[in-house]
Every structure is written in C-alpha cells, then in structure tokens.
Nucleic acid binder design. Structure first.
Lengths: 125, 125
DNA sequence: GGAGACAGGGAAAAATTTATCCCTATAAAA
DNA sequence: TTTTATAGGGATAAATTTTTCCCTGTCTCC
C-alpha cells in the first residue's frame, strides 16, 4: 500500500469530490454498479481492457470512502457484491451532471486542443 | 512538454469533464478567475503554497481546452489576463455542484476512510 | 547600477497513479 | 486430475503528474 508523502489538501469541497470520482476508471466502475453489474468478476468481464488488479484497487478505495458497500456472502466459492451506500446514491446525479457537460462540450474541447497554437494568442491594445 | 505514451480514452463525457477540472490545482485557479483574480502574478500571490510553474502549466492547459482565454495587452511590462470563454462559464455551475456535494459529505468520507478496516466487512448468510 | 515586479519556460527529480506479472486459496465441473 | 470460476494481493515496473531549481527578458523605482 502506497503511503502519501505530501498530505492532501481537502479543505475545499471540490477536492473531496474529485478525490472520490477522479480515478482513471472510477466512473466506469460506478456505472457498472449502477447497472447491477456488481460482482467483481462481472465488472472485470465488462471492463476487460482494464487490469483487474486496478479495478480492485478502485473498488477498495470507493469502499473506504463509504461510496460503495461490500457484501460478502458465505457461499463457496465466496460471492461478493458491491452496492451503493446512501451517500453513494447521492453522487450519482453529480456524476450525471459531469457526464452531460462533458458530452455537450467534447467536440469543442478536443477541437480546441488539437488546434491550439501559442502564437495564435492575440495581443490587445 | 510531456508526450503521452498511452492514448486517452475520452469516449465518455465524464472523462472529458474530469480531464478539464481534474488537475491538482485547477479548481483553485478557476475559482481565482471567477473572483477576478485573473493576472498570473495575482494568482501566484493568492496560491502562494503552489509553485508558480505548476500554475502556469495548468493555465496553459485550461487555455488549450478553450476554458479560459488569455489576453495579452501591449503594455510594458506585458500585462496578461485570463478570463472565461463561454464554455468556461458553462462549467462554473458544474463545479458548484461538485463543491456542494463535497462540502456536504466531507466529514462522512474522511471519517469512513479513517475508520476503514478490511476485517469489518460483514459476511452475510 | 542594483533590486524588484512582470511573464515565462527548460531540465531534471520526486511523488503519485496505473499497469503488469505472478502468486494464494477453495470448490465445482469436465 | 486438470481445468475453470470465484476473490484477492505482493512485488515491481511503467506512465503520468507535480515539484523544485534555475534560467531568459523588459521595465520601474530607489
């Protein structure tokens, strides 16, 4: 387990939010659970381009934050399911807002970035 | 300038949004500009715990995405100001949503994380 | 002339996150 | 008995982001 050398600044609400949903694959994972793909193996199957190890790390992180809840059933082989906590439910509409904004401006942003040239910045008088 | 070795996946809107606001200090920078702290030197003064170099990198990134617009005035010494583009304006309420959610659940999340213990996960029958 | 404010960036190191590889272990099915 | 599915993690490497250090200039003020 990696130990941070520089303490995080979590004084602002946005830092908290970004910490929760900012990981590379967290959004996808959350989306899986939202669609009832809630067992580790099922999530791994759907997110087959992502290393399962990473998915597990993200799941554990979300669990630590209290966004998702891990249920271990006493079956053999063990069955595990993740579901949202109430706070986890409450972040879903927030994610939807981000999703919508991103979809609405994807082209603009990608176009800008592709076309960007330092020398194009105009000098005003 | 660092060149990515693995192409980004920007197929989902959330990935776009996180890309735009996900940098370590972007939120603070955006907040500065929102409060009319828009000159590099002024931003550097306010964000004095952050290395100016980093702030400049983030500013350039936001400019590339078309979130902020750089104005260079033909004065000596050169005066530079950043302001929002229309798309930049449109992300402000999104950030507010994140800010609000984070503030609302900061304690819960930090408490959970502090208390988290693997062995506390119950086994269901 | 020297100090400080202004805007900016290269090179390299450090920190952090993500990825790969290869293990453990149990039980059902082939 | 070997394979497959389940869940999971250690060690290490690679990729990425963030940080530090130290430069370049111009102009104003003392």
């Amino acid at each position: 387990m990696y130990e941070k050398k520089i303490p995080e600044l979590l004084d602002c609400g946005l830092a908290i939010s970004v910490k929760v949903i900012g990981g590379k694959w967290k959004a996808w994972i959350i989306d899986c659970i939202k669609r009832d793909v809630k067992r580790p193996s099922a999530i791994h199957r759907e997110m087959n381009i992502v290393n399962p190890r990473i998915i597990n790390l993200h799941l554990k992180e979300l669990e630590e934050y209290g966004i998702i809840c891990k249920k271990v059933y006493a079956e053999v082989p063990a069955r595990v399911e993740y579901c949202f906590t109430p706070v986890g439910e409450s972040i879903l509409p927030v994610i939807q807002v981000l999703e919508d904004w991103g979809n609405q401006h994807r082209e603009y942003i990608q176009h800008n970035q592709a076309e960007y040239r330092e020398d194009a910045v105009p000098v005003l008088r």
